[in-house]
Write a protein that binds this DNA or RNA. Sequence first.
DNA 1: CAACAACAATTTTTT
DNA 2: ATTGTTGTTG
Length: 750
Amino acid sequence: MLNSKANENLLEGLNEEQRIAVQSVQGPLLIMAGPGSGKTRVITHRIAYLVQVMGVSPASIMAVTFTNKAAKEMQERVNQLLGSQASNITLGTFHNFGARVLRQYGDILGIDKQFVIYDDDEQKSIVKQSLEEFSLDPKQYSPSAINNAISAAKNKMLRPNEHAAHAKSYFDEIVNRVYVRYEKALLDNHALDFDDLLLKTVLLFQSDQNVLEKYQNRYKFLMVDEWQDTNKVQYLMTRMVAGDSNNLCVVGDPNQSIYSWRHADITNILDFENDNEKVKTVNLGRNYRSTGSIVSAAQSVIAPNANKSDLQLWTDNPQGNQIGVSYNYNEQEEALSVAAEIETLVNQENLRYGDIAIMYRTNAQSRAPEEAFVRSGIPYRIIGGLRFWERKEVKDLLSYLRVIHNPFDSLSLSRIINVPARGIGQKTLSLLNGWAQLNDLSLYKTVTDTIGEHSQHQISNPNEINTRSKKQLELFMSMLGRLTTIASESDVLQLFDQLIESIQYKKYIEEQDRSDDRWDNILELRSAISDYQDFAPEVGLSAFLESAALSTDLDQMDDSGPDAVTLITLHQAKGLEFPAVFMIGMEEGLLPHRRSIDSGDAAEIEEERRLCYVGMTRAQERLYMTIATNRSMYGNYNPGMSQTVGPSRFLKDIPSDLISIEGKSSLKKGIDISLPESSNNILTNQSRKRGGKTSPYNTGDHVKHKIFGAGVVVGCLITPLGNDFEVTVAFKGQGVKRLLASISNLEISD
DNA sequence: CAACAACAATTTTTT
DNA sequence: ATTGTTGTTG
């Protein structure tokens, strides 16, 4: 022991198992960590232990996390323990690490160091283009399915020729043809996709022993979090970097494996134990996060899984409240009852809005609570959904920056060549693209050649580009040229401002609807760019583009924001915790999702069950699970369209003494859900169409009934026969009633 | 070539 | 409900 004082400090407050995990620093270590078992604490203390007690240099430690947000949090906590030394630790995601390796040594594999990273959208559009080239109908062969198959192949380390050998069906053959074309497109565009960041790194390590040794010599202690969600390529990468020293610690929980659809391979946990002879295993089963009720309920939900970890989760925490299960008429009512309960928690239970999260299976489910929160004035923020980096205005500007950074990126150039509209239409673009492909040139080069006065490549095509378009192309290219010069001389923020100015983007945005939102997004983008202002001109641009490609909405989520309720998918919620959690849409068809039920694959249902388990174990004190008996799909309640088939089977596995069931009781209890006058008009502009017929009432309408008095419409459905409407009204002091429009004579009072 | 209308497809989950 | 795609018109 180099430092016994540090040793004592670091082990203080840890339980026996946690101490063993922190102190086992030599050789392979597997930490099975249940939810809320102090996993992050163990990892950070283990890092500090390595440095302060074992005297390991921080530079030789690498910790890999699942998201950038997790990396950031871990960095902060290590900073607290180690101070300035902490900055020398390598901390990030697999994709981060891969990108860094390839920026430095990718040229060995023939990769341009200026490579751009293509996201899912761009991958799909390349697939679509390839299909069109082969005269295959993208409607018949879905680009997503093919893209997914290509990704699966890459995750199994199958190159196109190897994949061809495995082809079993006609679909596989199509995939293979597209795969070949797809790889060529990426090469031509000097681009890599997400999978390449991992795959090419492993290929590089395999083909160049010197490079691999550089990393092996540098990193002597490796830690990987969320091991149950790693894939085969990540497994290989980890083992290669760990090398013979094999001081590799992986942390995971098979019960929280929820990314098999992204080719995560749960057998990595088994393989780890099998591939390492003397692997040590530590089980962290004690939960410090949640109440007794929540832990027991979560246990009973995961129990039916055939494939599960035998790790028993337990807690000494007080039993706490029962889990609140509530039945609601439809998703609007579900959202209103959640909103009412939130107000109670905030006003009477001393919780802040920021202590509360709404979790759901699909992004589309955020809409109803969002509307309810707007109406009741509850502050909220949505994570994910229409992701920031995928918004049109953001992608447009990013595409400009990408073309400036890497002119070979023809995909980005196609995207922006006529945005804002400058008279370079589809006809011109397809002529140019055709020519580019015929001569194996980049689009950029083709355009340059086309407009050059004394160009040899003048498009000699019969359908020559007209002089007018040519003139526009000239103007466009000279503008790009100016911007490229600015990029090499000024910082990235100045470049961005000049870009906005040059293309008159503000004016363009103002002509569109929701222009305020769009402009806000651009300002947010600008503020993200300003983080790279101090870098040297080209370096700043490159670093910013990389972070833009690899960051997610979740990464932006930090505690500095205003006090607000968090709306988040169950997947994204992994690793987070909140004092109060509402899991909405606890219905068959939603959780488990219809797709997993229809697949007929028991393994898919088991994954849904784990997802439910992950959600439940995010809650510290209070957990609510809500059901809507009617749910709209694609905006209407037409008979047969509702995807709900009753409460989730997972709910039925929770012992009844752990739950308290409320059927609309929060409304019956007399909580006033009527709207503030001012918010009334938010809903009046909504379409009154329901199933083709015009609905007489809108959610939010104030109405009067002869017997029940004043109330607010919380739902209006067309009846199964389609000749009437069933109106659900919350009456002041009378509770919620369902009435037929034709006989109730409701008066809109406004 | 752009602006507008009509239409279809969409919803699992994301580094 | 909302988004993107396709076809028609000015």
